[in-house]
Amino acid sequence: MIEDDLRAAFARREALTPPTGPVRAAIDRAVVRRRRRRLRLRLAGTALAVVAAALAGFTAIAPRPPETANLLATPSPTPTGALNVLLLGLDQAGTGRRADSVLLVHVPADRSRLYLVSLPRDLLVPIPGRGTDKLNASFAFGAGPSGKDLSAGYRATRQVVAQLTGVRIDAGAVLTYGATRELTDAVGGVSVCLPTAIRSYHTRRTYPAGCQRLDGAAAVDVLRQRYGLPDSGLDRDRNAGRYAAGLLTRVREQGVLTNPVLLSRLVTKVGPGLVTDTGELSLPALVSAAGNAASAEPVAVGLPVRYTEKQPYGFRLDPALAPGFLDALRADRLGEWTAAHPKQVTGLR
């Protein structure tokens, strides 16, 4: 009957089946193309400069003339108490921009040094109105599908980070590739000490293990690399910390922090790729607070996390270490904590 006719019709069409060889080859070619596209979208990481941020970043507002005047005038009360500055390094321009490098700069109340706390971009966090997703996605949700509204992206990530850590974010900056490049070149290159050699996935350049001075293009290149590193994204975050520390040193050596003219010149050079938020603080006040703290070598430390082997994949807070770490961050006792947990600290030399 009709069932038999169906079976017969199907059976006769078996002859139409294309040979597997060419299909297989086409699949493999398409996979290569797709992987490349995915990388291009994701890569990035830029960790940009973050720290500079700590310093120069604040200044970013300065390029506008009235602000510059304000900067030079300097009469504003210096903030007391601990400060937290959020630095975001964006991935490549395009749709759905993400913050692939997230660095929280903690300035302790005693201004003894800066703590550069890197938050892994793959950390699973509650995002208001979006359920649980990766930390770097919060920027994309805020910045919208066009990825143009960097301030909205920053605000979204700031809210998520504030919720996660329980600290108030006093100021922050967003850096694009371009801003990082300009910033690095403007200070005459940044010294970074790499624990292992890096071969760039993007430019095929090789950066040997050990200390070297990177110019703007090389710095961006290094900050984007995560493939081939032993800890992948986490190692990239550590390199961002190393870069930030090197940049701080450079900025300090040149006296930028104590010389408003140099500072405003630097900020002007970096241009519009740098978006900053100084909250209720004035720019000079922030710079002066960070400047005092920056005279000692900073401590770079990673938020303690563990990888989850079940869906959704990503990092979660390490149940053994993270509560203590976050308590220390909130209570401004990071000095004690990092002294007690040397393994969590990134080597800068």
Binding site: F10, R13, E14, L16, T17, P18, V23, A26, I27, D28, A30, V31, R34, R35, R38
Partner: peptide
């Protein structure tokens, strides 16, 4: 082939699926 009734579309369908499988 049975689903689409056409070898070319079948090939596209399998290719698209297998790319995702491989990734």
């Amino acid at each position: 082939v049975m689903l689409t009734g056409d070898p070319h579309q079948a090939q596209d369908l399998v290719q698209e699926t297998m790319v995702r499988v491989q990734l």
